[in-house]
């Protein structure tokens, strides 16, 4: 199952490292990643991840909530189909 992980918030040191480490611990493989920092401040990172067997989007969400709280950013995990349905025919 593939999901989109999005991270939005103020840029601080260690966000990417911590999100990646959490994904690794949850047995999720990062397939693609894109990241921008707008006006040297607003951070957005989008990752396409493959979720390991036996894990769910809910497991990943809960694990990433811990990082979100620590870094004061918003992290969402959503099945990729919601984006495909909206933007691809």
């Amino acid at each position: 199952m593939r999901a989109i992980v999005s991270v939005l918030g103020k840029d601080t040191k260690g966000i990417i490292a911590n999100v990646s480490m959490t994904l690794y611990k949850q047995d999720a493989n990062i397939i693609d990643i894109s990241q921008t920092v707008l006006q040297n401040e607003y951070f957005t990172m989008i990752m396409l991840v493959e979720i390991g067997e036996g894990k769910t989007i809910d497991d990943l969400s809960k694990a990433l909530d811990v990082v979100a709280k620590e870094f004061k950013v918003e992290i969402r995990v959503q099945h990729e189909d919601i984006f495909n349905s909206m933007h691809r025919i």
């Binding site: 989109i4 989008i46 933007h87």
Partner: peptide, 16 residues
């Protein structure tokens, strides 16, 4: 892959 802007657009629709 979907592009960055498309993903942000969907998230903004839901979030804001």
């Amino acid at each position: 892959m979907l592009n960055h802007n498309e993903i942000i657009q969907t998230i903004t629709m839901i979030k804001d």
